[in-house]
Simulated scan of single mutants.
Amino acid sequence: MADLHNKINELYKSSKSYPDLVKNLIGIGVQSYSVEVSSGIILYRFVGGENILHGAVSIPREISESFNRQLVLNALKDTQEGRTTYPEFMDDIAFAGVRFYEATLNGNNKRVTYIGIGGSYEEAIPL
């Protein structure tokens, strides 16, 4: 289990982009993962049914009460264009009302779904 934690940490450090990270996560057997935005805790689900919890922030993020799709789109664009870091992206989606997001890495419809109170947004993962 500790070995998987180390592998995941290395993949985040060595991947050049989100699509690159996704390919690398798939390579170690990750089928999907969920990120709890307020805490930063990530649940990874692996081929064969193994699950691991990974990561957390020391100060919880406050999540806006209602989901704002346009703010989610703005946050995604900013991070995809390299204008924000991952912690800034997490702050931005928290402000947009995203409580958690789910990345589905198996099958033909690889996607990330951002979910909050009163709404959600799904985006395909370009590979």
Rank of each mutant, 00 (worst) to 15 (best):
M1F: 06
M1H: 08
A2S: 05
D3C: 09
L4G: 12
H5C: 13
H5P: 10
L11A: 08
L11S: 07
L11E: 09
Y12S: 04
K13E: 10
S14I: 07
D20N: 12
D20T: 04
L21S: 06
K23Q: 15
N24G: 12
I26G: 05
G27V: 01
G27S: 03
V30A: 00
Q31L: 11
Y33N: 05
S34L: 13
V35E: 01
E36F: 11
G40L: 06
I42D: 02
L43Y: 03
F46P: 15
V47G: 14
G49H: 03
L53G: 02
L53R: 00
H54K: 00
H54Q: 04
G55C: 00
G55D: 00
A56W: 05
V57K: 03
V57M: 03
S58Y: 04
P60R: 02
P60A: 03
I63T: 12
I63K: 15
E65G: 14
E65D: 15
E65Y: 09
S66I: 13
R69G: 12
V72Q: 07
L73H: 06
N74A: 01
T79L: 10
E81T: 08
E81M: 10
T84M: 05
T84L: 09
T84A: 02
Y86Q: 08
Y86V: 08
P87S: 05
E88A: 02
E88S: 01
F89C: 02
F89Q: 00
D91M: 02
D92G: 05
F95Q: 02
G97S: 10
R99W: 08
F100T: 00
F100W: 10
Y101M: 12
A103H: 07
A103C: 14
L105N: 11
L105D: 07
N106A: 14
N109A: 13
K110S: 09
Y114L: 01
G119N: 10
S120I: 04
I125A: 08
P126Q: 14
L127M: 13
